[in-house]
Write a protein that binds this DNA or RNA. Structure first.
Lengths: 229, 229, 229, 229
DNA sequence: AATGAATGAGCTTTCATTCAT
DNA sequence: GATGAATGAAAGCTCATTCAT
């Protein structure tokens, strides 16, 4: 589903392969607790959540969070690094689909759901260019996978030739604007619309689920960019 | 261009026609000052800006802002009411275009620019369902105009039949995710993509400006949902 | 005795004569409360005391302290400005003494007591060169008075000619090292020693009070530069 | 010059001769490392420096510092014990000078420099009475030496008869107020002043180096009791 | 015994809202 | 009705000390 589990990779080796001194066992455990809690809290509240709250959710002291992630960006980066793995996996799966168009659609639908379920993920992914080393490294891992997905679909003649890997990322960002309020069906509706825009050619529109968005779906489907308290 | 001017309508009468006790002249003047300042401040900083800042920009005390708009939502609503007029005007202009497809495209392009230029507008529009009375009233004025735009385009056989007025609002919201960092050309690229999705049928893709989004356009085009400090 | 009272000067005019917009009456009252509390707290604990404590002592919220004195230095400066008035007054009184030597001695003895009674004063005076505008202004007011004191004593042929106003300040700083633990008599002992160093010539030592410093007077007379917790 | 070297005395036996269970060899090594580091860190930052910093400088864990010196005072005491040896040596050298006045002066000048060079030493010496057993023991070793110095100078008729060993300690403490900012010459100026106060009689003032303390020497010569941040 | 990770109280600072003037 | 000073809860962060490894 849409939870990104801790991948179990010992953090003594970052995904990029850089070797660092392994953490003590308890420190490692806490690091994992913190990342897990951060994911949960960020998912629910977005990246603005305070360290205090994350610490409480993780069952550790604030100091511990600060020790492990001296600045907020460090935590976001570490989270990004974990989540990027899940995204990469999903992209590769999509690229491997014998029907490239279905693969592409599945990926976008998944992205819509994942971002709807995890407010923080959407922000982290939107930040995919900012931040530094590790985020860059994450993007470096992501890029080839998305490129493959795009290439396959283009070679199959279903995805328009003038879009690139970057465009797919931006499409995902636009889709993330669909918040978590509406139904999954409703989100599909707009993913389908975007997909129709990405298609090489169409003889007619792809049927849009659901039948009709209700009058106040607008009210509820758009991501509450920010509560107006 | 993308500034929404104060429409001059005495606020002693809401657009919906409800009569309320008119404000003293100086109070009315302050109300206008505050709304003007709010638009300016919200445009630059988004709806998170504090009342303090708005008060300073308006040249009044914070207390005055609170008296006039007891809660933040009230101010957003009042702003929405003003801005909705500009949007309505733009939609009507679009609907009047002899070429309905061009009208639709022009409107979306305008919406992309307007929201890029005014961070608060994007949030206000996204909030188009929340809030109560006055927002509802605003939407009531907006709906027919957008419906006309949609109907015209559909009757001309260019806009797919399965989209409604609501879908256009949501499309606008998705587009608002494209922040103000990239070029206008870059924004057009994605508006074009969405338009291609909205078209009834296409024999091929509409050329996308600009030639190619650079690798880090992703970084800069997506609206910084929130700085991660 | 060694308390420096609020001088009652409306703070709408700084001692240096610069005119500023007068504070609202209640703000002025709070300002005075804060300064009074700060003096009390600083006297007892030194300049390291937190704003929280001062706010509590003053009976106002922390925010009020921050509003009035955005950074710690501002508060110290304001305090310095008030206290400098008391010092100037004392110096002038000393300089007016028909017996210049007695005047000088009285002043140093007073300085020893005042600094013993107010740990913060000692630090503020020691800072007499650091800090900025207002401190500089304070020193400018202080200098002529001390110069007069020095000049009178030198013209009377009792104070050595090779010392200046600056030396007196430094002597005071050295004396401040005698904390508040010992008796006033004990402090006098060392003031007398310094005075004997400042005298033009002596046929013999001036009698030192008290008879004999006890073995552990050393322990208790020296200012606890810092508790070793 | 003003560094106090570790005297090499095995600390398994306190200077006072009390036998305690000897430490394991590695523990003993760590103890020495910690003391060395503490001296260095305290010299630079004063006694407020945290155990963390000392541990890092010593290359051991904080826990080790706490095990060896359960409270800060213990470390200060141990340091005092080491440094007292250097002071004793210097006092004895001064007392042995054929010219007792020169000996006394040299000692005070040395004390001024040593304390200026080592912010922690000044505080440790000022603490010469607080703390318990070991400090008392240290003082017991120091006292006779200083008494000898005083006695010699008094017998030679140059040092006033009404001062004692204790007074010399306090004079040193006063001198320590002269920080490390000014020149050595400047410090000499005030040592000379104090010496003039200690002299039995003078026909005139001893020339004070340097010619004139500049206006802002006051600012820089006085030990910054504490930064006001 | 050594280690350094964990702790959490405490201090600083901000800011949305209230309220005395 | 207008003002902006006051408020105090809340968030950020540090650091002396403890304790699991």
């Amino acid at each position: 589903m849409f939870r990104f589990g801790y991948d179990g990779v010992m953090s003594s080796v970052t995904s990029a392969g850089t070797a660092v001194r392994p953490l003590r066992k308890d420190a490692e455990r806490n690091r994992a607790l913190i990342l897990g809690a951060a994911r949960e809290v960020y998912a629910a509240q977005g990246l603005d959540a305070g360290f205090d709250e994350i610490a409480r959710a993780a069952g550790v002291g604030v100091g511990t969070v600060y020790r492990r992630f001296p600045e907020r960006g460090d935590l976001v980066e570490a989270l990004f690094e974990q989540e990027i793995d899940a995204v990469v996996a999903r992209v590769e799966q999509a690229a491997a689909d014998p029907d490239p168009w279905r693969g592409l659609g599945d990926f976008l639908r998944w992205g819509a759901e994942a971002q709807a379920a995890d407010r923080g993920l959407a922000q982290v992914l939107a930040a995919a260019g900012r931040g530094h080393e590790r985020v860059a490294a994450g993007r470096d891992r992501l890029r080839p996978a998305v490129e493959a997905l795009v290439r396959h679909a283009q070679q199959a003649g279903v995805l328009r030739d003038d879009v690139t890997e970057v465009d797919l990322g931006i499409a995902l960002a636009m889709i993330s604007q669909l918040g978590d309020a509406g139904s999954s069906d409703l989100r599909d509706r707009y993913v389908t619309l975007v997909l129709d825009g990405l298609a090489v050619r169409r003889d007619g529109p792809t049927p849009l689920p659901p039948a009709q968005p209700s009058e106040d779906d607008l009210a509820c489907v758009v991501a509450p960019a920010r509560r107006h308290r």
